[in-house]
Design a protein around this nucleic acid. Structure first.
Length: 102
DNA sequence: AGGGTGACGGGAA
DNA sequence: CTTCCCGCCACCC
């Protein structure tokens, strides 16, 4: 496994409950500022086998952008359950719920 | 090899 | 606020 992939998985597993991180933010912490799309791939292909808190990852402005609507609703549900703040239906209030420092 | 595709991001208009 | 465009990069035909 690539070191980048391992680091990304580690970072995601460290996101605390009630907090979220953006794809680009995770890529940056993992040492690849332009690797947001790889973070997407990793989530898409390994969230299950590594039991990652995939729902705690949103885009830069806090929006849930999963193409599958059913999964998107599921993510919103999980986040609300942990007390993440929303400013709109499918948008997290990043000023209050973004996890800084990893 | 070569083209299409994102659960992205940043900048311009 | 909304488009539109471009860079990015691993993966999948």
């Amino acid at each position: 496994m690539q070191p980048f992939t391992a680091t990304v998985i580690k970072i995601i597993k460290e996101i605390p409950e009630g907090k979220v991180m953006s794809y680009g933010q995770i890529a940056t912490y993992a040492g690849s500022p332009r690797g947001a799309r790889q973070v997407v791939r990793i989530l898409h292909s390994m969230s299950h086998k590594y039991s990652l808190p995939w729902h705690r990852v949103v885009n830069k402005v806090g929006e849930i952008k999963i193409s599958d609507g059913h999964q998107a609703d599921r993510q919103k549900e999980l986040l609300e359950r942990e007390g993440v703040f929303f400013i709109r239906d499918h948008q997290v209030d990043m000023s209050r719920s973004q996890y800084d420092r990893a």
